[in-house]
Amino acid sequence: MKEYTRAQLALRNGQDREEIWCAFEGNIYDVSASRLWREGKHYDHWAGQDLTHELPDAPHTARVFERFTIIGKLKN
């Protein structure tokens, strides 16, 4: 699976490019098709970044990521 740096992920924020991606636990997910991520923002969260540490504040579990396709891995 292709690996992406944090800088490459940051470009997929819904503003700089059409892709809307976010990372969780080392996987990068394409959330472009979700109406909840329009323009790269989902409530107080922004696309193009690792959301692993944000999940405890979310009203849902990690299972929400099962809805999305993993398109790569986040490089350390």
Rank of each mutant, 00 (worst) to 15 (best):
M1H: 10
M1G: 10
M1T: 08
M1W: 04
K2T: 11
E3D: 14
Y4N: 05
Y4A: 04
T5G: 11
T5V: 11
R6I: 13
Q8F: 00
L9V: 02
A10H: 02
L11T: 07
L11K: 09
L11F: 03
L11H: 08
R12W: 00
R12F: 03
N13G: 05
N13P: 14
G14Y: 00
Q15D: 09
Q15G: 03
D16L: 08
D16W: 00
D16T: 06
R17H: 11
R17T: 06
R17V: 08
R17I: 05
R17A: 14
E18F: 13
E18A: 14
E18N: 13
E18P: 08
E19N: 13
E19S: 05
E19L: 06
I20C: 04
I20K: 01
W21S: 02
W21A: 01
C22L: 11
A23E: 01
A23R: 03
F24C: 04
F24D: 04
G26C: 07
G26F: 01
G26S: 06
N27E: 10
N27K: 13
I28L: 05
Y29L: 02
Y29S: 02
D30K: 01
D30S: 03
D30G: 02
D30T: 00
V31G: 00
S32T: 13
S32Q: 04
A33C: 13
A33S: 12
S34N: 08
S34G: 09
S34T: 03
R35K: 15
R35E: 11
L36D: 13
L36A: 03
L36P: 15
W37L: 04
R38I: 12
R38D: 08
R38Y: 15
E39R: 10
E39S: 09
E39H: 13
G40S: 04
G40Y: 02
G40I: 07
K41L: 15
K41I: 12
K41W: 15
H42A: 05
H42M: 12
Y43I: 12
Y43C: 06
Y43L: 10
D44P: 08
D44M: 13
D44K: 06
H45A: 08
H45D: 11
H45E: 10
G48Y: 00
D50T: 09
L51G: 11
L51M: 10
H53C: 12
E54V: 14
L55K: 12
P56N: 09
P56K: 14
P56E: 08
D57Y: 06
D57R: 07
A58Q: 12
A58H: 07
A58K: 06
P59D: 02
P59Q: 06
H60K: 12
H60G: 15
H60D: 08
T61L: 07
T61K: 10
A62W: 13
A62H: 14
R63W: 15
R63E: 15
R63I: 14
R63S: 11
R63K: 13
V64F: 07
V64H: 05
F65E: 03
F65L: 08
E66P: 07
E66T: 09
E66K: 11
R67W: 09
F68L: 10
F68K: 05
F68T: 04
T69K: 15
I70T: 04
I70K: 05
I70H: 03
I71T: 07
I71G: 05
I71S: 02
K73T: 05
K73D: 11
L74S: 04
